[in-house]
Design a protein around this nucleic acid. Sequence first.
DNA 1: GTAGGGTTAG
Length: 604
Amino acid sequence: MMNRMAFIKFRGNFTTNSSFHLHSETPFSSFHLALHSDVSSNRSMLHKITNLNDALNLFDEMSQRCPLPSVVHFTQLLTAVTKIKHFSTSLHLFNQMCSLGVPVNEFSMSIAIKCCCQLYRTKDGFALLGCCFRRAIPPNVYIYSALLDGLVLEDKILEAEMLFKKLVKQKLCEPNVVMYNTMIKGLCKFSNNVTAVALLRLMEQKNCKPSIVTYSTIIDSLCKDKLIDDAFKLFKEMVFEKGILPNVITYTSLIRGLCNLGHWDEASKLLIEMEDEKISPDVQTFNVLVDAFCKEGKIEEAEAVINIMIERGEVPNIVTYSSLIDGYCLRGEMIKAREIFDSMTLRGLVPNVVTYSSLLNGYCKNLNIEKAEQMFREMSGKGLKPDVVTYNTMIQGFFQVGRCVDAHKLFDEMYAQGQIPNECTYRIVLEGLCKNRQVEEALSLFHLVGDSKLNSDIAMYNILINGAGKYGKVDIAKNLFHDLIDKGLQPDVHTYTVMISGFCREGVLAEARSLFLKMEESGCPPNNVTYSVFLQGCLKNKHYDDVEMLLQEMDDRGYSLDASTLSLFIDHIAAGLLDRSMLKLFGKLVPKELLNDPSLCDWE
DNA sequence: GTAGGGTTAG
């Protein structure tokens, strides 16, 4: 049985908040070479450091010793503080060390740089790199890797690539496996799997052996992009060609990939395989299963997994319960969802922004906006700052119940609170305005924002065209359609479908028909939704010429009729408007589930 | 007797 690493919880509120500065005047004394006599006790204390106070007390005690402990000991302390992720404290202590006159070397420097970078202050990290040069501390691969990691963390992938290439070209340092892994992680973050694999090949070429981390990073990324076959190809290469044994992380990524694709059997096979290999699933592995079951609405299975997990000595965490809350919300069982939420506190788990937003989302989706507002206030009361997702959820909730003014207010508040609206926000607002018959408002917002990314997103056009078409503003829809073509955007199957839907609603079947025919030649063939929309348009407008041909085409393409189109057909046949000979075609076009639908049984 | 890398939730 493998020993589980204890997860250390960080709940301290301690932040130094002081911006970093290295006093260039600080004399770096070289007179502290003497090791303190009590080295071993110092080391044993360091092992025990799991909270900030211990670290700060030790630092205090160390800085009062005479002579001062060596830079090695101070570095050990910095490492301990950094390991518990108190980066700003670690940085503060580094500053103190400098003030005390402890000489800085590449070890302490790399920690300080790492801390800057992890605090999203990579710029300060580079400032410290400048200090390295001035202090004649030669930057090494540790320092450059920390900086590269910072750029990746801040999504500055181009700068990361530039730095990496510069280091290689100018031979500033020889990348090692960690540095390659960091660069690969960055590429994977942007789904650039092809380049990531290319870099893996380059490592091999340069005799830098890829590690389990290298393979796991790329495998995980492939899984996230649903490229499960490629992921397994790489997995097999790792195991059979490189002789690298997979670990719990590798297996968890693959299991998640399989679950997300609904390949349950294969996921369970892999779970058995890892057990055979004596690798125990951990909390995260179990959470993947819980989450996958919950997303499918299979709460009973999810709860069974949680029970197994508890039997195995794993403790469900905030992620486990958040998934469960989502599952209950999805099924509309809000009382159960709330119960789970409350039980978390009893288990000593503190709900965070994600947990609150989950429940809030559940209330919104189940149209209990008052309860959602209550959650929104409650979280602020608990000192949790609503983030973009929370605001998006709440705004969508307001629009859903027609409270446009409140949605608008919240949109403004979001700005005021420093939460920058994202693409999702705009989608929600445009859709919300359209659904509440404020197409012109949506349109003016769309033009007002003037965000080039937003304004050249076909999905945004689809929302507006759909909104315009639905409420009898076909002219606006037509203008938008021309507008996007002029911009060089490619209409997709949704664009065509919403346009056709708009034309049908207006009764301009000729225009609908010509657009429908244009789809095929534009290399964007209609899907079954397009067929349904157009067929319904034909029926409602008593335009029966194309109907049989359309049904035949659907059959040829292997599409089937949805319930609403089918029932419209039945009405038309019952009213004697359509030839009964078409019934034959339905036999092929109606999915089996619908044939068993009692409401549709009286059509013969 | 000092520093770095990979997996979870809305």
